[in-house]
Design a protein around this nucleic acid. Structure first.
Lengths: 211, 211, 211, 211
DNA sequence: AATGAATGAGGCTTCATTCAT
DNA sequence: CATGAATGAAGCCTCATTCAT
C-alpha cells in the first residue's frame, strides 16, 4: 500500500531539512537563522545538513529552487480551475493557507530582499516571476471573461503585470499583519483588495462563489 | 527653556551615521551589515555609533523612523503637486531617484522583511503606510480627476489601497532589476505599469507631460 | 596451528589502505588528511578503515611502522650492492624513485615533525634510524674502500653518522624543490652533494658508473 | 631609562602573539595548534589575534617571516665571530639555546613540512636558505682556515652546501631527542657530529676552545 | 565484510559591545 | 567627545568516529 520511494532516505532527508529551513527562514529570515536552528527544527544534527547541502548558501539556493517548484505546481493547479478568477485566487492566496507551509509571505519578502544583493537568487526569482506571469497572461488570453469584456484596451500581458503587481503588494502587506490573525482572516484581507482590481479589469458583474 | 541646538554636532553626527547606515543597509541588508561597516561608511569610529545609538537594533529602529519622516516629507511634497497624477508620481518614484539615497527599494523590502519578525518595526511600518494612504485618500477625495471620472464605484480609500498595492508590488520588482540599470530606466519601468492602473482608475484621456 | 593467510583480503585491505594513506600523507600531511581523504584515495568507505585500524592515530602509527619495514627492505637491498658507494646510493635515493611511492621526502619530514611531539613515533623513528645506521656502519666496516682509505681517523659509526646527517639534510632540501622537477632531476640534485661527502670520506679516485 | 617605542602597543601585540604562536607551534605543530591555544599562550582573547593577523594562515606566514629575520640576525652575529668555526657554531647551535625560543628545531622541521605543500612557505624557506648559504660561502671564501688548508678541491659554495646539509640533518635528529635532555646536552650532541665534518673539511689541527 | 548516514565536539572566524585613553 | 583595542559569545563548517543495514 505505502509506496517506498527507491531513494527514500536521501530524498526524504533533503526534503525534511528544506521543510525545517522554510519554517526557520519564515520565522527569522535567512541570515538570522543559524544552521543549528535548522537542524533543531529538523530534529537532526548540524553536521547532517552538510551531507545534503554544501553550505548555508546552498540551503538558501535550494529553498529558492523549491519555491520555484511550488509556484509551478501552483500554476498548474491554477490552470485547472474553471474560471479565470478562480485561477487567480488559487495563485494568490497560497500564502494564506492553513496547510503545510509552502509559500509563506515572510519567506517571499525575504527572498526578494536576498535577490536584491544575490544575483543568482535574483535570476531565479525573475525566472519564477516570468514563468508565472506568462502562465497568467496565457490564462487571460484564453479566458472568455477577458475576451468578452472590454479590458480597457490593455493587452493580456499588461493585465497580468498589473495583477501580479497588486498581488505582490498585498503579499508585502501580509507580513505586517499581527501574528494573531488567522490564515482565513488574512486570506479575506488579501482577496478583498485584490478582487477589486480583478473586477475592475474584467468588469465581471457576478462573482463566482468561493468556499 | 531647554536650548535646542538647531544644527548641533549631535544632530549632524546622528544624521551622518544614519546616512551611512542607509547606504550599508540598502547594499547588504540589516543583518549582513556590521557596525564596522557603518562606521567605515560614515568615516568615524565604531565606538562613536554607540554614543548616538544604544545598539545596532536602535540604529535599525532609528533608520525605520527616518524612513517614516522621509515618507512624510514626500507626502508633503506630493500634496503640492498641481494634479493627482503628478502627486502620485512624486510619491512612487522617490526610490528611483538619482539623488542622495533616501528611499531605496532594497531597504524598503528589507524593512518589510524585518517587520515580519519585529513587532515594533511592524507597528512603525504600518503607521507609515496608514499615514501615507490616508494622505493619498485625501488627495483623491479632493481631486477633480477622481471626482469627475466614474471611478468604477470605488471609494477614495479603496482606490488608495489599490494604488499602494501596485506601488509596493512594483517596488518589490525594482529590487530584481540588474545593477547596471540606471535610476532613469528603472523609473520608466516603474511608471509604465503603475500609470496603467492610474489611467484605469481615473479614466484620464490626456496624460500630463513629464520631463 | 593458526593458519596464516598469505595474501588474504585482510592483509591486502590493510596494505591498500596504507598505500592510500601514504599518498594522502605525503600530499597533505598527517593532520590535514581526513579519514575521508584516505578512504576516497583507497576507493573504499570510511567505515572500512576502522575495521583495520582502531583510529586515525593508529593509521599514522602503522604508516610509521610500514616506513620502518621499507627502510629495512631498503637496507637489505643495499647490502646486496657490490660496492659501498652503490649501497649508499640505493639507500639514499629511494625517495627520488619514479616507482610507487614508498619513501617520500614530504612524508619523512612530516614523520620527524610528528616524532617531535609524539613519543611513540619518536621511539620508532629513532629505532629505524639506529637500525639503518648500524647497517651502514657494518657495511663501512666490511668495505674495502673504507678500510684501505685513510678515513681521516674516523670510526665506521662516526662515518655513518655523518653520512646519515647529510642524507637527512638533503632529504629535507628535497621538499623545497618545485613540484615540476622530475624524480630523476631531484635524484641528481641529491646525489651531487651527497656524493661529494662520500668521496671525501672514502677518498675514492674513480667513481662507479651509475645508470 | 626604558625606551618606549612610538608604536609600542601595535608592534608589541603582534610580537607577543607571534611569540606565543612560536611556543605553540613548536609544541604542537601548525595544524594541531588552535587559535585558542595561541590566544591562551599569549594571554589574550581569540578575537584579538584577528586584529593583527588576517587568518591563521597569516600567523603561520608571519611566523615564517620572523624566522627569516631571526636567521638573518644570526648570520650577522656569525659574521662577527673571530674564526670560521666559531661562526659556524653560532649559526648551527641557535636551536639549542636556553634563551627565549627563537629558532626551535621542531618548528623548523614543521616549517619544512609545511613548505612541502605550501608554495609560498617553500619560497620563503628557500630564500632564507639561500641567503644563509651565501653568507657562509662568503665566510669560507674569506677565511684563512679554508684558504690555507687544502679543502679537498671543493669550492666554497660546495663546502657550504655540505655544511648546511649536515646541520639540517642534525637539526632533524634533534627533534628525536627525549624531552628530558637539556639544551646544553643537545648542543653537545649536535656539535659532536657537526664539528667532525668541519674538521674534515678544513683540516684544522687545533680546535678553538669553546665554553 | 562493507557501507555511508549520522553525530557532535571543536576549529576558524566574525561581530556587537565595552572601556581605557 | 572620539577612538579603536579588546572581549567572548556565537556562527559556519569539518571531521573522527559510530552504527544500523
Amino acid at each position: 500500500m505505502s509506496q517506498i520511494p527507491a531513494d527514500s532516505s536521501l530524498v526524504d532527508r533533503r526534503a525534511q531539512i528544506l521543510e525545517a529551513a522554510m519554517v526557520c527562514f519564515a520565522k527569522r529570515g535567512f541570515h538570522q537563522t543559524s544552521m543549528h536552528d535548522i537542524s533543531a527544527e529538523a530534529g537532526t544534527s548540524v553536521g547532517l545538513i552538510y551531507r545534503y547541502f554544501v553550505s548555508k548558501e546552498a540551503v538558501i539556493a535550494a529553498m529558492a529552487d523549491r519555491h520555484k517548484n511550488e509556484i509551478q505546481d501552483l500554476l498548474e493547479r491554477a490552470r485547472q480551475a474553471p474560471t479565470l478568477l478562480e485561477s487567480l485566487e488559487i495563485l494568490f492566496t497560497a500564502h494564506c493557507s492553513e496547510n503545510s507551509p509552502k509559500v509563506l509571505s515572510a519567506f517571499v519578502v525575504d527572498l526578494y530582499a536576498e535577490a536584491s544583493r544575490n544575483p543568482s537568487i535574483a535570476d531565479l526569482v525573475r525566472d519564477v516571476l516570468q514563468t508565472a506571469m506568462e502562465g497568467v497572461t496565457d490564462l487571460i488570453a484564453r479566458s472568455p471573461e477577458a475576451k468578452e469584456a472590454a479590458t480597457h484596451g490593455l493587452k493580456p500581458n499588461e493585465l497580468s503585470e498589473l495583477i501580479f503587481a497588486v498581488a505582490r503588494g498585498m503579499l508585502m502587506l501580509d507580513v505586517l499583519q499581527p501574528q494573531e490573525m488567522t490564515a482565513a482572516e488574512r486570506r479575506t484581507r488579501q482577496l478583498e483588495v485584490t478582487r477589486r482590481l480583478w473586477r475592475l479589469l474584467f468588469k465581471t458583474e457576478h462573482e463566482p462563489v468561493y468556499a
